[in-house]
Design a protein around this nucleic acid. Structure first.
Lengths: 114, 114
DNA sequence: TATCATAACCTCGACCTTCGAGGTATACGG
DNA sequence: CCGTATACCTCGAAGGTCGAGGTTATGATA
């Protein structure tokens, strides 16, 4: 049995990654730390999830990457949003909002529907 | 490529099903319709997801079932929450809340963290 | 009466994601 | 010189969702 809080990441990871990239190009390691920090350690993305996700986004044309030197002086692949990626982000953000509202309506219902 | 709004159901379906059962025992068919109606057609649970989910909940002792006759006069398996199921519902509800808040913090962040 | 829609159940395989484990390489501090 | 942090990657196991397909029975309709 897996921890359900982790399962919930499914379908949301791409959205989170795209969002982090709106702050400018970043490499995978930084993305993980940003998400972890901003979420108050609630969302901890494993590298085994992140790198496949980044490659996915790349294949779909939502991000582009380039090898550069990081702040720490090491070679790192910097990802940045493409215009298609921005559109995708807007779409997924909207979908997320609708989804949360829909779940809330069910969770907060006082009684069964007719 | 799958529709990300559907992917988001992952990890949330159990929560929704447990919630619907707080309104009293129900059979699978009714659970699907309740969720669909309350969510304003946003959440449409396929039967191929629901029945495995119900069996999962049963195995874990969160629901119990009994064959009865439905309102429509057909034989149907009625599921009801167990005490363990109620506890699980409370836990998953809390987890869901934390998760949504965590994602929101990332999505609403104006700039990258330090 | 034949037929269709609805109610209600179920299984199966394809597909996808996530994760943990494992592996590589380099920079820097002690 | 060695450990830690940075930074990348892959792989297999595990699990969930879905669409398609199938079954039975009721009731309405043509």
């Amino acid at each position: 049995m897996r921890d359900s809080s982790l399962d919930m990441l499914q379908g949301t990871l791409d959205l989170l990654v795209l969002k982090t990239l709106t702050w400018g190009p970043a490499h995978g390691y930084a993305i993980v730390r940003w998400i972890q920090q901003l979420s108050g350690d609630q969302l901890i993305v494993s590298e085994g999830s992140l790198y496949p996700a980044l490659h996915r986004l790349d294949e779909r044309g939502w991000v582009e990457s380039e090898w550069k030197i990081s702040d720490a002086g090491r070679r790192a692949r910097f990802y940045r949003l493409t215009p298609k990626g921005r559109a995708q982000l807007r779409a997924e953000h909207a979908t997320w909002g609708r989804f949360v509202r829909a779940v809330s309506r069910v969770l907060e219902a006082e009684s069964q529907p007719a």
